[in-house]
């Protein structure tokens, strides 16, 4: 069973995504911020990490950079509700530094599941 970590500072969104993924048959763990996520990385291997970009304490972009370095096999899906760095949006920035896919908030369930499936089967 594939193991997925979801990081978002919004508990409702964490709850939503884990519900969708669990229903689809994945094992899901959640973290409300980057620091909690770090802890989980050390304890468990993940096939996929879904992370928000803009979060207090530790930015999503930082998490992506770290993951690329420590665990190159783990797939990364970035999700964001908007905002931008200079010209490119946050999501573009995330992709640029190593996220394998991006999804804009708010999203449709089917869209999210498609992306997840694609990443885990590739």
């Amino acid at each position: 069973m594939k193991q997925i970590l979801v990081i978002d500072d919004e508990p409702d969104i964490l709850k939503l995504i884990s519900k969708i993924l669990e229903k689809a048959g994945y094992r899901v763990m959640t973290a409300e911020n980057g620091r909690l996520a770090d802890k989980l990385f050390n304890e468990h291997p993940f096939d996929l990490v879904i992370t928000d970009i803009i979060m207090p304490q530790k930015e999503g972009l930082e998490i992506i950079l770290q993951l690329r370095e420590n665990s190159p096999d783990t797939k990364i899906l970035a999700i964001s509700g908007g905002g931008k760095i200079e010209r490119a949006g946050y999501l573009d920035a995330a992709r640029a530094i190593g996220a394998h896919a991006i999804v804009k908030k708010p999203f449709e369930i089917s869209h999210l599941l498609d992306k997840v499936e694609q990443l885990l089967n590739s």
Partner: peptide, 14 residues
């Protein structure tokens, strides 16, 4: 807008 998207995500999702 960013906050709004975060609010709208669970609304639409759930």
């Amino acid at each position: 807008a960013h906050d709004f998207n975060n609010i709208l995500t669970p609304i639409i999702g759930f």
